[in-house]
Design a protein around this nucleic acid. Structure first.
Lengths: 348, 348
DNA sequence: CGTTAGCACTCAGGATGAACGAGTGCTAAA
DNA sequence: TTTAGCACTCGTTCATCCTGAGTGCTAACG
């Protein structure tokens, strides 16, 4: 069954009013905001029908109406004005992200903060690996006879390095042999495979060389596994307290600690669409059932996928948040494109 | 003017009771907890004097007493049982910090979370540089003709590396010359000095070499300046909401956003003492005037100093928090000792 | 038949005030 | 100096009342 045009208009007014005021909307107020001049009595009749159809709810008999999740869903799908970001806003986003961000952690937390401040709701940002990252090259740089720098280049064109302290002295002359060994036998394979190869080699080479080799390999394994893991940052959780629906300290506490802890189970958009809106009970997660989540994804190179989302009350300003979030996701993607561009693909 | 023994005992009972209950303490309750059998009437007389001396306060005429900042101060200085951590607790701290923590960021945030969970109050952790960190060695590793890995070793024995993409092709044969140049002219000097030297060299060498050199140097400058900066992490801010004194959402919000934003101005202990307790108005910072802060410092090598602190209500359990915080600070220090041990000092 | 005016009804929220009780200060006796 | 006793204070709780926004229904209207 379809809604009449007038019902849709009324629903839209109710939702947008409620988004701003967080208070039940009465028939009179609607009549005032509606361009068609209809009396509040007519509106009341329509409202009664909208309630019986499940698009609106009544907190108690003599209060105004508030939108139900079903109502929000219709709003998001059909009624909402899809906002475009102005140039000024796009500019603002870019500026917010334009500080130097070497480390992934920092980039994420910076982005999270900027987003949260921008939409006035808590935000989370994640960079999730979809594919294993492999080592593509090793270098060993002797420092002195007991220490040595390992440099590892990875498939995503990042470089990591660390100073290793050695248990046994190593002859600097052996270093090139070792480097060669690493670059022929330990490159482009999974971490499990790396450990296997290490075992196989344990017999064939002198012990002090093996020791250095195994330290290097275990460092590499650690880094690679970490790089494949999810990295999640949340920001702006204190925004929750500004919302009337979370005046209750217990509720606020529940949500805040969920956001602080759970680096898992945060909603993500489907693979084919870049943006997803989850309204109240549509969230599988218990802690989020009273809230709505708007989440976008962005690509990081070919093999990774990042998440950037906003958590708010069900009456959140979907239209604005969705637009700004898309803007952010786009900006993030462009950032990573610059950052991760493999040198082979450089064209000038 | 000094307090009698009995007054001190009473004060102690009041404070410890209030720490647990967050509610004004009456004369009867005190009489019950006091080993000397004195009647509540006597206690009342004593209480009246303690109020007039400024150690206690009365929210209103017919309520019990609550400690004043002055009272807490006396308690912290004299009356408090200095707790020792049990072996089990020390063990617990170490275990909490024992996960692998390569990056400084992670170490701090891990520590912050562990501490906050352990004391049930919000916590902050900072690693602040006291001295400039200088580069001690450079390596350049060619990847292909348009890209190149820079590896820089720093005074604190950390190593950083990054893939540089080059504007102009560079002949791999020139790399050793460049490396040599870097290691003779750009090592052990300040970032300002580095930029100066770079300018001086701009004429004397071929342009494509200079380009690579300047990219390398600016990368180095960036990293070094960042390493000298403060790194602050806060954790467990949601704990605030569990406290009755922050049931008021506005108060909670103020404090939380202060903690989330202000990476500056967080209290630090004096140089000579490892632990500092700041009670309510003793905090210079406005946002902290209704709270108490316990903060400890730990050394990172010889040139850095870290901060680790807990924020709570003025009625916070100083004795337990102080003990646990010291434990944490010690554990952090040991961690950094392991991590930063310069190779020259290795003795076996 | 949809729309509107009118009106009785409902119900949350705020104000008011009485009863309660924890705790005090003071006085007089031990 | 300590204690028992007692009147007094004042925040808290609970019931009650009032108010007003908003509804649902009915009857009249175009």
């Amino acid at each position: 069954m379809n809604l009449t045009d007038r019902k849709k208009k009324i629903l839209k007014v109710v939702i947008e009013d409620y988004i701003n005021s967080a208070e039940p909307v009465g028939s009179k107020a609607i009549a005032g905001q509606l361009d068609d001049s209809v009396s509040s009595a007519t509106i009341r009749n329509e409202l009664a029908e909208l309630v019986s159809m499940g698009y609106l709810e009544q907190p108690h008999t003599s209060a105004g109406r508030i939108p139900s999740p079903k109502g929000y869903r219709l709003y998001v799908n059909e009624l909402m004005d899809r906002q475009r970001l102005s140039m000024a806003e796009t500019e603002k986003i870019n500026r917010a992200l334009q500080t130097k961000m070497e480390e992934l952690d920092r980039l994420l937390s910076q982005a999270g903060r900027a987003l949260s401040a921008y939409v006035s709701y808590p935000a989370y940002v994640a960079a999730a690996g979809r594919k294993r990252i492999l080592a593509t090259r090793f270098e060993l740089l002797p420092v002195d006879e007991r220490s040595c720098i390992v440099v590892m280049m990875m498939g995503n064109n990042h470089v990591k390095s660390q100073l290793l302290r050695l248990q046994l002295k190593v002859d600097p002359k052996q270093i090139p042999t070792l480097t060669n060994l690493l670059n022929t036998r330990f490159v482009g394979i999974s971490t499990v495979e790396m450990n296997k190869r290490l075992m196989e080699l344990s017999e064939g080479i002198p012990p002090q060389m093996f020791l250095l080799l195994s330290q290097t390999v275990s460092y590499a394994v650690e880094i690679l596994e970490e790089a494949g893991q999810k990295e999640v940052v949340t920001a702006g959780t204190s925004q929750i307290l500004r919302l009337p629906e979370f005046r209750d300290a217990d509720k606020a506490h529940d949500l805040m600690s969920f956001l602080a802890d759970s680096k898992e189970n945060l909603p993500a958009p489907d693979d084919n669409s870049p943006l997803k809106i989850l309204i109240g009970p549509e969230n599988v997660n218990k802690a989020l059932q009273d809230t709505s989540v708007v989440v976008a994804s962005y690509d990081i190179g070919d093999d990774m996928r990042g998440l950037i989302g906003v958590v708010g009350p069900t009456r959140m300003d979907y239209s604005t948040v969705a637009a700004r979030l898309s803007g952010f996701a786009g900006a993030m993607q462009r950032l990573f494109e610059k950052r991760d561009l493999p040198p082979e693909q450089d064209k000038t």
